[in-house]
Design a binder for these strands. Structure first.
Lengths: 212, 212
DNA sequence: GTCTATATCTCGATAGAC
DNA sequence: GTCTATCGAGATATAGAC
C-alpha cells in the first residue's frame, strides 16, 4: 500500500512538519491555521517551518497538492475488477470507506477547499491526473460497462458515482453531528463504520439492480 | 415560507451584517473569516460590526445559532406525510434538496463547524430542539413506520436517513469538484440539481423496496 | 540544522469626532 | 448611528548566534 501521509522523498523532519500541517490545516482551514499551531503539533519551533517550507502559503500548497493526488489515486486503489459488478461494488465501498477513514485529515482538507470556493482545485486536479493518470472516470466507466452488460439497470453513471462517493464520505464530514444524534455511533465509531459498509452495499446494489 | 436568512426581529442594518457574516463564515470558517472581509461584504466599515454585534465571537454565535435552528427545522419543513411512503420520500428529497440549494451558506457553515470539531454543535442543537421541538428523529420514525407497514424492507432507519441526507447534501458541499469533473454540471447547475432529485428518488426507493 | 530574539505586519477592538 | 484614526495583541517571517 502507498504511504499514508507525506511524499516519500521527504526527510524525517519534513514528514513530521508535513503531517502536522495537514492535521492543522484540515481542522482550522487555510487561513484559520496558525504557524505556531503547526509548530506545536510537529513539536518543533516556528523557525524550522520556514527553514523547510518557505512560508505558510508554500506549506499549504505542498500539503494540498499531495492531498489532491492521494484522492485521485484513491479511486484506483479501491477499484479492483471482480467477476461480477456486485462484488466490484462491494469491494469498492469497503475500500473507499477505509480510505476515507484512514485519510481523515486529507478528506477534511479537500472539503475545506471546496467550501472556500475550490480555486486551487482545478490546477492541482489537472496536475494530478497528468502525473498519475488515474482520473475518477474509471469509476464512471465501470458503471457504464455494468449497464451495457445488463448487470444493472440504465442509470446516469455520473450520478451513480456521485451517490456512492457521497454516502461513503459524508458521514465522516458530519461525524460530530452523527455522533450527537445517534449515540451508538458515539459509543463505538468503528463498529458504526462497519455497519455502514453493509447498509450502503445493500441499499445501492438493490437501487441499481435491473427490474425483475 | 420562513425567512431565508436572518432572524426577523433584526433591523435592516443588522440583517445586512448578519447575511454578510454568514457568507464569509461559511466560506472561510470560524477562525479563517476576517472582520474586514465581513465589513466589505456588508458594504459598511469595521466599527459598525462591533457596534451591532459586540465582537467576532458574538457575531459568529448569533449566525451559527440561527443556522442550527434553520437546519433542525428543515426536516420538518421537507417532510409531509403522503398516502404512500414512495410519495413521502419523493417529496422529502425534492424539499430537502431545495432547502439546501436555497440555504447554501447556512449548509456550508454547518459543515465548517463539523470539520472544526463540532464543539458548538451540541449545545445549540439541544437549544434548537427545545425551542422548535423538531428533532430530526421524525425522519427516523417515518422510516420505522414504513418498515412496520411493510412498505419497505427492514433497514436500520438511522443509516437510511443518513444516506438520504448525504446524497441530498454532499454534492453541494463538493460543488467545485463536481463541476470540474462533470462539465454538464458546470454549464447548467440548476438542471443538474433537478436531474439529481430524480436519480436519488429512483435509486433510494428501489434500494429500500421490499423483496418481491 | 536548530534555536532565540526581534522586526514587520495583520487583525480585532476601541476612542472619539461628527 | 456612522466614520476615521489608532492602539495593542498576536501572527508571519527573518536575522543571526550556535
Amino acid at each position: 500500500m502507498a504511504d499514508l501521509s507525506a511524499p516519500s522523498e521527504y526527510s524525517d523532519t519534513e514528514r513530521t512538519i508535513f503531517d502536522a500541517a495537514l492535521q492543522v490545516f484540515a481542522r482550522e482551514g487555510r487561513n484559520g491555521a496558525r504557524m505556531q499551531g503547526i509548530a506545536d503539533a510537529a513539536d518543533i519551533n516556528k523557525a524550522m517551518l520556514h527553514y523547510y517550507f518557505r512560508d505558510k502559503r508554500t506549506l499549504y500548497e505542498n500539503v494540498f497538492a499531495y492531498t489532491v493526488r492521494q484522492f485521485m489515486a484513491s479511486f484506483d486503489i479501491s477499484l479492483t475488477e471482480a467477476p461480477t459488478f456486485a462484488e466490484t461494488l462491494r469491494v469498492f465501498i469497503d475500500g473507499y470507506v477505509d480510505f476515507v477513514r484512514t485519510h481523515d485529515a486529507a478528506m477534511r482538507l479537500m472539503v475545506q477547499e471546496n467550501l472556500a470556493g475550490g480555486t486551487l482545485l482545478g490546477e492541482h486536479m489537472r496536475e494530478a491526473t497528468k502525473t498519475d493518470r488515474t482520473p475518477p472516470s474509471i469509476l464512471v466507466n465501470t458503471i457504464e460497462d455494468a449497464v451495457e452488460a445488463g448487470e444493472i439497470r440504465p442509470v446516469d453513471p455520473h450520478h451513480a458515482v456521485l451517490t456512492v462517493i457521497s454516502t461513503c464520505l459524508y458521514f465522516f464530514v458530519a461525524r460530530p453531528t452523527v455522533q450527537i444524534l445517534h449515540p451508538p455511533a458515539e459509543r463505538d465509531w468503528d463498529a458504526f463504520v462497519e455497519e455502514r459498509k453493509d447498509h450502503l452495499f445493500d441499499l445501492i446494489y438493490r437501487g441499481l439492480a435491473p427490474r425483475d
